[in-house]
């Protein structure tokens, strides 16, 4: 795994070609059916919209790889956003103090998810479901259920851009690359896959899986907090309902990218493709002016088809291997 060989390259092609083709097909369809979809503006718009969902999906992919799940990501985003918004407006904190507070809220939520599910050996599905409620309740408690308008104080984060690409997008790309390298090229990444494949075997070979799991929940909490900061800056306001349903978007993106819900298998780059496919679909359907029921039918169908295609791709890859 140390040097980049031809087999690596072949795997790269089989892994990502399918999704690249799917993405290209979607872009072609929308380009042909609308006047202005195929333009730099569209892609810049999409690039500036996806960072928060992308970061959450990266976290979700990690959690799924270790055979756990985090249903609380959307609510935790709402909580972090609420803390940030209220700290800046009601408490009059400066940005350099409010940002760590938001990140702290994300890390604390991640720590709670990890520690509780590990200490009492509870399914993360249940613990994070509880966290989903608690974090949303917390977001409403902190903001008193009122959207906080922040304004220029926070504009700079999402407003800054290089070559028309926003700072959050560039940050998200860096995180995607780092997260992929960590997953596929480091000991920690190997352990994650091992824990997700067979936790008992990991334990029996003398490695404690718990610190690995806790780290993954913490990483997810941190990424969610980053996503919250980005969204809060983009809207210059903190809405206690922000992030509702993001957990399902993130799971959808990861699954489209071939991440297994059973653990042990996942790729950050594939998840990135999953996020792109959903974003292009959303943007294209809005540009076409599709009716709401059509939008939902198509989006749902694309997720199912993607998973079916992934199933066959895997059988094919396995068949070749033996």
């Amino acid at each position: 795994m140390n040097s980049f060989s031809t087999s690596d390259f072949r795997r790269l092609v089989t892994d990502y070609l399918g999704m690249a083709v799917a993405l290209a097909a979607l872009i072609t369809v929308f380009s042909l059916s609308t006047e202005h979809f195929f333009s730099a503006t569209t892609f810049r718009t999409i690039a500036n919209q996806i960072p928060s969902v992308l970061l959450i999906s990266v976290g979700m992919t990690y959690v799924l790889v270790i055979a756990e799940i985090d249903l609380s990501v959307g609510s935790v985003l709402g909580l972090c956003s609420a803390v940030l918004g209220v700290a800046l407006t009601k408490w009059g904190w400066p940005l350099w103090l409010a940002l760590p507070a938001a990140l702290g809220a994300g890390l604390a939520s991640g720590a709670f998810n990890g520690l509780v599910s590990l200490r009492w050996r509870l399914p993360s599905f249940i613990v994070t479901l509880g966290m989903l409620e608690m974090a949303r309740g917390g977001a409403h408690a902190v903001t008193k259920s009122q959207t906080q308008y922040i304004g220029a104080a926070i504009e700079g984060i999402a407003g800054a851009s290089v070559f028309g690409l926003s700072l959050p997008f560039l940050l998200a790309i860096v995180i995607v690359v780092v997260a992929q390298l960590v997953l596929s090229r480091t000991v920690f990444g190997r352990y994650m896959v091992a824990v997700g494949t067979n936790e008992e075997a990991v334990r029996l070979s003398g490695i404690d899986p718990r610190p690995i799991k806790l780290a993954v929940f913490l990483i997810t909490g941190f990424l969610v907090a980053l996503a919250a900061i980005i969204d809060t800056s983009r809207f210059q306001s903190a809405n206690p309902n922000a992030g509702t349903g993001f957990e399902l978007q993130a799971i959808a993106a990861a699954v489209i990218g071939g991440t297994s819900l059973m653990g042990g298998r996942g790729s950050i780059v594939s998840t990135f493709f999953g996020v792109l496919i959903i974003a292009v679909l959303n943007s294209g359907l809005a540009a076409v002016g599709a009716r709401d029921e059509t939008k939902r039918l198509i989006t749902g169908a694309v997720i199912v088809v993607a998973v079916i295609v992934d199933h066959y791709r895997h059988r094919l890859a396995k068949g070749k291997g033996t």
């Binding site: 609308t34 006047e35 202005h36 979809f37 333009s39 503006t41 569209t42 718009t45 919209q49 959207t147 969204d231 983009r234 809207f235 210059q236 306001s237 809405n239 309902n241 922000a242 992030g243 959303n282 943007s283 294209g284 809005a286 540009a287």
Partner: peptide, 30 residues
Amino acid sequence: TDKANQVVAALMTEHPDVKAVLCANDSMAL
């Protein structure tokens, strides 16, 4: 807010001559 943002962003590209956006609530206006 988030859903309205996606839709408006896509529509601004597709219909560059649009002069106004009428939102059914203020969260979507944000």
